[in-house]
Design a protein around this nucleic acid. Structure first.
Lengths: 356, 356
DNA sequence: TTGAAAGCGCTACCAG
DNA sequence: CTGGTAGCGCTTTCAA
């Protein structure tokens, strides 16, 4: 209310974004001093009165440093970029995501999700590179090619980390090992004496990344069991795995249930709990008894599985800790020489309830 | 493989991020020319051979422009910042989110989600302001105060848009009107002859923003009905609305169902379909018949509601179009003088099935 | 203890 | 048609 600067009506609506120079002027010091004070630069000693004047001036003007200018000067940023696309994901995934962001922030990174819907891999990588992130953590929504990674690294990214099945050179890839989910599900069903096992493969776009590895894992488990049984001379050699395309709607489920008997299946791994609920309903409506005639296993261990009747057996997934990943990012950023290696960070186990 | 620049082994691992100067050098032109070519500046004509040389050089080096430098120079960015927190949200919300991003990108904005978990309103606003976004679209995860908005605007944000119930001065606030959801649900139940109506209020943190308005809407509907009935001399004056705190787990639901009869309720609006499923299961297990003894209404019109028995009545929510919002953002950014006004962009209607 | 000045990468004026 | 150059906001030597 009492500042001489008020008499400059050249900018109608207070459009001027205050800079450190403005702060310096108001505090009667140089821009350098402002920078020292506001960043608590320890290498230099500023008198307490000066500090206060600077701080008050900054407060007064509502000064906020310009991140772009800062990182331009510094030659690097502390931005971790998480590409995000449109994937329908459950509470597990989103919890993990949340933890990751939280931990990265604790380590003083600026976490930014970059919506990359509908961009081709190289376009996407380019767009990310423009922001000069210090690290990119791709949860697999967007496919990374080798040259994408190359581009990112050339643009200053000190760590590129991928979650998912892709194994791209130059990245730290954390295998979420979706295959294991299918594997344990099918192993459980075989152990329960089932022999012709359906595996639901959602037709929704964007889910292939999860469903394909699960299907492959299922096949692996069947082969393993077959080989073991053959070796033992048992009769289990003939385990069949049948892919079952399914859309997430009633019509598709009813259609599938309608031809269930001709498929001759005695069990199904339904991709996840939600698809399991859908399919189980359709099966029951079609007069197929669960688990007697057909066993059903979901995945994700959602609450809703316990609410169904029969209670749904499911694959419980231990999601990688956001904390662990955050620390990997930090280490990779600090020592560029952490060798890009793969680790598996997801384990799965069957929770048997009543549907299998 | 054949460049004279290869003989500069000063930087071991190709650490150098190529700049426009590098491109210029390689192409044998000035940095200005590089800029013109790469931005297709129409105000200036560059010969085709030169253009090609520049493009090839850029390609060669893997040059990617530095967004920070660019926007520093330009004095503004085209970044739209979406604060994101940890809210368990359904497919509606995430579809909307996706559309919004898509449309904003079409309008040539850079959309960035900024994880703002655990930041106080003013800290958050400051962090956002450092990035100098041209617009901020808060979907309500983080509370915006009047001075937050002031700060953002002073930092160059030309539009601050809030979705949610908050009505902050200086923002375009799009009322998602959660209240209306409770309103239509309760109106429907009253119309069906129910008089003592429970309203589930989730205890999960972060949901208050949705649940409180829904509860208030429910109360409003009850009052309205009461007044109308009193005016008509009818016996409906005594509509009671009872808040029912509930955690999203079986224990909490069983506990609630256990004292259901003493609550003397003949209907319940269960916040959404998932809570409805949880509660309905608990009620049925406790021997309460649905809908005879107690009617149940959910919200969100999820597929799972149709899979339940009885089929779940629900409130279908017409979510605001991402497209519409994107256009509002664009208009607000271009004409600063679009008056910040409120609009309601969500409508709701009851889908009656079997549970009510 | 503080100030002057250089320069990060980029674009937009003006000269040539 | 192309090149030189100033300057966006910031940090950080180097001098005073």
């Amino acid at each position: 209310m009492s500042h001489s600067t008020e008499q400059t009506p050249e900018r109608p609506t207070g459009q001027a974004v205050p800079t450190s120079a403005d702060v310096a002027r108001l505090a009667g010091v140089s821009r350098a001093t402002v920078s020292y004070v506001l960043n608590n630069t320890s290498a230099v000693r500023i008198s307490e009165p000066t500090r206060r004047r600077v701080r008050e001036a900054a407060e007064e003007l509502g000064y906020v440093p310009h991140a772009a200018a800062r990182s331009l000067r510094a030659g690097h940023s502390r931005m971790v970029l998480l590409p995000s696309a449109h994937i329908p994901v459950g509470p597990l995934y989103s919890q993990f995501f949340h933890d990751l962001q939280w931990e990265l922030r604790r380590l003083d990174y600026t976490v930014v999700q970059y919506g990359s819907v509908g961009l081709k891999p190289d376009e996407a990588a380019r767009a990310w590179a423009e922001l000069r992130p210090v690290a990119v953590v791709s949860l697999g929504e967007v496919e990374l090619t080798e040259q994408s990674v190359e581009l990112l690294k050339r643009s200053g990214a000190r760590a590129v980390i991928t979650l998912g099945t892709q194994q791209v050179p130059g990245t730290h890839s954390l295998a979420l090992d979706q295959g294991r989910i299918g594997e344990v599900a099918i192993a459980h069903l075989i152990e329960s004496g089932r022999r012709r096992i359906g595996v639901v493969v959602p037709e929704e776009p964007g889910l292939g990344m999860f469903s394909q590895p699960r299907l492959e894992g299922a096949r692996r488990a069947a082969e393993t069991a077959g080989a073991a049984a053959a070796g033992a001379g048992a009769d289990a050699a003939g385990v069949a795995v049948v892919p079952l395309p399914l859309r997430y709607d009633e019509e598709s489920a009813d259609e599938l249930a309608g031809r269930w008997r001709e498929l001759g299946l005695d069990a199904v791994f339904a991709y996840n709990d939600e698809y399991a609920m859908l399919l189980m309903r359709a099966l029951q409506d079609a007069g197929i008894s669960v688990p007697e005639e057909t066993a059903v296993v979901g995945a994700d261990d959602l609450l809703l599985g316990r609410l169904l009747r029969p209670r749904l057996s499911t694959v419980h997934i231990d999601m990688v800790l956001g904390r662990e990943l955050a620390e990997l990012v930090d280490r990779a950023v600090r020592d560029t020489d952490v060798p890009p290696r793969s680790r598996r960070l997801l384990d799965s186990r069957v929770v048997r309830r009543e549907s299998s």
